[in-house]
Computed example of a mutant assay.
Amino acid sequence: MTVRERTQETESRILSPFAALSSKSRGRRRPEDEDELRTVFQRDRDRIIHCKSFRRLKHKTQVFLSPEGDHYRTRLTHTLEVSQIARTIARALLLNEDLTEAIALAHDLGHTPFGHAGERALNQLNPKGFRHYEQSVRVVEKLEKNGRGLNLTEEVLDGIYCHTCGQEAFTLEGRIVRLADRIAYINHDIEDAERAGVLDEQEIPREITAVLGASKSQRINTLVESAYQNSQSGAIALAENVQTAFDRLHAFMFSSVYTNPSAKKEEVKVPNLIEVLYRYMKDPDHLPEPFRRIAGQEGCEQAACDYIAGMTDQYAVQLFEMLYVPRSWNGMPMTV
């Protein structure tokens, strides 16, 4: 018996009847030989961690654009927090932790620079629109590894696509990531907003804190425990009073932080920067080679969109400055 087979046997013996077993995966678009050590979901997780798109998340904005403080979240730290919360819930419910982790680590690989401001800008420019969850699937299917993609399992692809809105994932593990994503970003956005002087945690209405708790750790613990207590019959859910308080917390954050002029003052610059880069990159001669190939196959609009969506905040700003901000002349001084 190989290590993988032993793991699969353990899964079938220990995990919940509602769990997605690696031995019964729907498989990959391109069939591959099995690994002796790792299950298919473990291999997916490892491919995601080692891909270039995952590394770039460390320089992509979460809420505050290109934050300079050491402790503000980036898209990478957000992803790790989602993974931790999702794995805790999955383990408590005896669901497949490896699958849950793989989905969580990949869910934002297609996110733009400058957070949702960049996403809105590309959505306005691209004739096909732009949604980061669709782009995350596109990254792992078509853009990584020079166009070969990561060839992930159907369970992981579905969980990535369904992590934010619309239809639910067909696995409970994917549905856990959807909940964990919301738990993570609302709570760490409170902490970042307080650090930025945009919000005082004491301003959160009492009707919310009375149910969820008055601190980040209390709120996360309440939400995770509620998910465990109310998700043992084949559905992922919160207690009704917890769900109501959680929805109110989201509405509070929307009005106090996500649309706060102080927090979003730099975002007004994003649409113009993205549009200028987009217009420039629609010329295939201005694209790196892998994206020229996409331009030839799927059109210049798609290639420009793919290239810009993959940029970090820093790279997008530097490229804009290189192309459109005049530089000082460094030649020899004029002589008289």
Rank of each mutant, 00 (worst) to 15 (best):
224 V>L: 02
133 Y>I: 10
24 K>E: 15
91 R>Y: 11
288 P>Y: 06
123 N>F: 05
90 A>F: 06
300 C>H: 13
176 I>Q: 03
127 P>G: 03
113 P>Q: 04
178 R>C: 05
208 I>W: 02
12 S>K: 12
26 R>S: 10
149 G>M: 01
221 N>Y: 08
298 E>L: 10
116 H>V: 10
162 C>H: 14
2 T>R: 11
110 G>V: 03
166 G>K: 07
161 Y>H: 13
86 A>T: 01
267 E>N: 12
139 V>G: 04
97 E>I: 06
214 A>F: 04
60 K>H: 02
134 E>H: 14
154 E>Y: 14
135 Q>T: 06
290 P>M: 05
304 A>D: 02
253 M>I: 05
74 T>P: 07
126 N>C: 14
39 T>S: 12
49 I>S: 11
245 A>P: 05
308 I>T: 01
105 L>W: 03
262 S>V: 13
293 R>I: 13
247 D>H: 09
196 A>L: 01
298 E>G: 09
93 L>Y: 01
315 Y>E: 15
130 F>S: 05
35 D>G: 04
92 A>N: 15
138 R>E: 15
235 A>D: 15
334 M>A: 12
240 E>W: 08
16 S>V: 06
221 N>E: 15
303 A>K: 04
291 F>T: 07
144 E>I: 03
274 I>K: 00
279 R>Q: 15
169 A>P: 08
141 E>C: 10
188 H>N: 12
96 N>A: 05
61 T>E: 01
122 L>N: 04
11 E>S: 09
286 H>G: 09
38 R>A: 12
44 D>R: 02
234 G>Y: 01
10 T>S: 13
167 Q>N: 11
109 L>R: 06
252 F>R: 05
232 Q>E: 10
320 F>Y: 14
329 W>M: 12
5 E>H: 13
319 L>G: 08
260 N>W: 08
207 E>R: 11
132 H>G: 02
136 S>E: 00
140 V>D: 02
21 L>N: 07
100 T>S: 08
125 L>P: 01
299 G>P: 04
68 E>M: 10
25 S>T: 13
72 Y>I: 03
83 S>M: 12
192 D>G: 01
334 M>Y: 14
251 A>N: 08
336 V>E: 15
75 R>W: 02
16 S>F: 04
15 L>Y: 07
112 T>S: 12
193 A>C: 03
330 N>Q: 15
269 K>H: 11
171 T>R: 00
131 R>E: 11
30 R>T: 13
326 P>T: 03
224 V>K: 07
327 R>T: 12
257 V>A: 03
17 P>H: 03
280 Y>C: 06
143 L>G: 04
